[in-house]
């Protein structure tokens, strides 16, 4: 196990078999203590994360949000063993090597200036973790972009202004202040602002994109759950930023058609 390798000491008898080295290293008292601390921290942190984090994150209303939540947990479980190494060494030293008093401790600790094996193992492990994170990130980034490539996607124009959201359905020439979306239908949001920069955020769908004045930005999602969800502004936009929120109604396709057919204010989207 790499943890023990890292802790191994320089200047050991090189004629011994490496298996012997590892086992004699493992049987050292301080190493045993560190391993116990590591197990303690790994179990504690992993358990706490397992118990609490899924309940903290907003309920998912899209595949994108499912991915956000699973990515969070995957990264969390990946980092638990690493964090546990740091905390284990901290714990072991503080519990077993403490020196109190006003005079400095005696200079009789092993004068280890470096350990090539520990350096190599550390760099290799952290590089491997880094590659894992990157690959994961690229893969899921591609998956969450799927709705934006859907041929049958509904387009909704979103306009932020201080401090309200307006939604325009170009196909139906309809403007609303609350968002209505059909379930299981990809939707592309074309977002812009009339004044300062805002950020369009559907909390339970895990999507967010800035609304800029003079530019149109895009994000896309496929809602997969019927219900009422939250739109919030996530970029400080002045006086009533905290209150710049509205609701998303995800409804069945039939209800959506019915809603579209209803009379609404008809307004032309400004030419882009």
């Amino acid at each position: 196990m790499w943890l023990m390798q890292m802790l191994s000491e320089t200047g050991e008898d090189t004629t011994k078999q490496s298996g012997n080295r590892v086992s004699s290293f493992l049987s050292r008292r301080d190493v045993q203590q560190a391993i116990r601390a590591w197990v303690f921290w790994a179990v504690t942190l992993g358990g706490l994360g397992y118990l609490f984090i899924p309940h903290l994150m907003a309920d998912s209303a899209s595949k994108t949000m499912d991915i956000v939540k699973s990515t969070f947990m995957a990264f969390y479980y990946t980092s638990v063993p690493v964090a546990a190494v740091v905390l284990a060494i901290a714990t072991q030293t503080v519990l077993h090597n403490r020196h109190t008093g006003t005079a400095p401790p005696p200079d009789d600790n092993p004068a280890i200036e470096t350990n090539q094996m520990a350096n190599i193992v550390w760099v290799v492990i952290s590089s491997a973790l880094c590659v894992f994170l990157l690959v994961w990130g690229l893969v899921v980034d591609n998956v969450v972009a799927e709705p934006s490539r859907a041929a049958n996607a509904t387009v909704v124009n979103v306009t932020g202004q201080q401090w309200i959201w307006t939604f325009n359905y170009p196909d139906a020439h309809k403007d609303t202040s609350e968002l209505y979306l059909p379930v299981d239908q990809p939707v592309i949001f074309k977002v812009q602002s009339k004044d300062v920069t805002h950020a369009f955020w559907i909390v339970q769908m895990g999507i967010k994109i800035n609304a800029n004045r003079g530019e149109i930005t895009e994000t896309a999602v496929t809602p997969n759950k019927i219900g009422v969800f939250d739109v919030r502004c996530a970029e400080l936009c002045g006086l009533l930023h905290a209150h710049m929120q509205t609701r998303v109604h995800v409804v069945s396709k039939a209800d959506y058609e019915k809603w579209l057919a209803n009379q609404g204010s008809v307004e032309q989207w400004p030419a882009s």
């Binding site: 949000m65 990515t71 980092s79 994170l133 899921v140 895990g206 970029e235």
Partner: peptide, 21 residues
């Protein structure tokens, strides 16, 4: 270590889309 690990979450593009701001 906590600051660093939470930074890793935020470096991920889809994760950041949910957590940014």
């Amino acid at each position: 270590i906590i600051g660093g690990v939470t930074g890793i979450f935020l470096s991920d593009v889809p994760e950041d889309a949910a957590l940014h701001g």
